[in-house]
Simulated assay, not measured.
Amino acid sequence: MTDLASAFPTRPLKLRKTGIVPGIFSYLGGLMFLGIAGFIAVWQAPGIYNDIIISQNPVVVYDSTVEDGHCTTRRFVFTDCEAHVTYSVKGKTFERDIELMFVDFGTKDYEVEVVRSADKPQIVGLSLGLDMLWNRIIVGAAFVLGLGALGAALFFKGARADRVRAMARKALPLTPIPVNVVAISNVVGAKAVAYIIPRPGKKPGPNIASRIGRKQDLFWLNGDGQALAVLHAGSKHPILLDAELTRLDLTEEERRKIEAARDGVEPAAN
């Protein structure tokens, strides 16, 4: 890499293209996951909160009617139940729609009783909801936190992509570095390349993604799947270069000098 580094321009350079997908797509994905997390929270949290109150002082409501009660199990694991309950307390009639979600293996019928809070008769639930209360809390929290974390990660990814794309528009010092290409696949209108920064003796870092044209190739360094990338000063996100180096704002002389130096490149450590 020494010869190639010495052949690389020391002047600040702009990048004409980065191959990085704009952050807006990550933001939209993040909003989708956050929206699903919010939906699950709004859907399940009130029922869980009511059943926590009921569990503190439950009373079975024998004079009650359960309509449209059914449970659906998906993939033999996730079960959601619905029921419309009508009951009376001291001559006052109450009606409530009850929805539950929990994890239970296999499919089976559930026998349930209508239970209410002795202290707050307007709060009603099903005995199944109390039996599965901790199950529901854990499952609901896992969904909300997991989807929320995915949404936040996508927002972070989008912000990082936009930051790198913004830096590319500025003339900044660039450092050439070898990267290990781990996968190339065809996507709509382009090729998607996954690559990592080689770290000898250490666990490989996360895959970095870039897009190049269908008819373009990478600036390969050797026969071991290494290609050339450049790193902005102060950045940790290397930009993958194409075979013709058109992503860099180079003069023709600078381009020829880099291409000529490649013949003397020493394989970098994997």
Rank of each mutant, 00 (worst) to 15 (best):
A243G: 09
E259Y: 00
A243W: 05
A233L: 12
Q226G: 11
A243P: 09
K236Q: 14
A243Y: 08
L241C: 02
L245E: 10
D242A: 10
I239E: 08
G223N: 15
K236Y: 12
A227R: 00
E253L: 10
E259W: 00
G225Y: 02
K215E: 13
T246V: 06
S235F: 01
G234C: 10
F219R: 00
L241A: 00
K236F: 13
S210M: 01
R255Q: 10
T251C: 07
A243Q: 14
E252N: 08
F219P: 02
E253D: 12
K215W: 05
T251R: 07
R214M: 14
L248H: 00
W220H: 07
E244T: 12
E259M: 10
T251A: 08
L228V: 10
L240P: 06
K257E: 10
V230S: 08
S210L: 00
A227T: 07
G213P: 04
D217E: 15
G213Q: 05
A209R: 14
D242T: 15
I212V: 13
R256P: 01
D249Q: 09
E252T: 06
K236T: 14
S235M: 05
L250C: 02
K257H: 11
G223W: 06
K257Q: 12
K257R: 15
S235Y: 00
P238D: 07
D242N: 15
S235E: 15
H232K: 00
A233V: 08
G225W: 02
L250P: 01
L221W: 03
R214A: 14
V230L: 07
D217G: 15
H232N: 07
R256F: 04
L218W: 02
A209E: 14
W220E: 13
E254K: 05
I258V: 12
L228D: 04
D242E: 15
G223K: 13
R255F: 08
L241V: 03
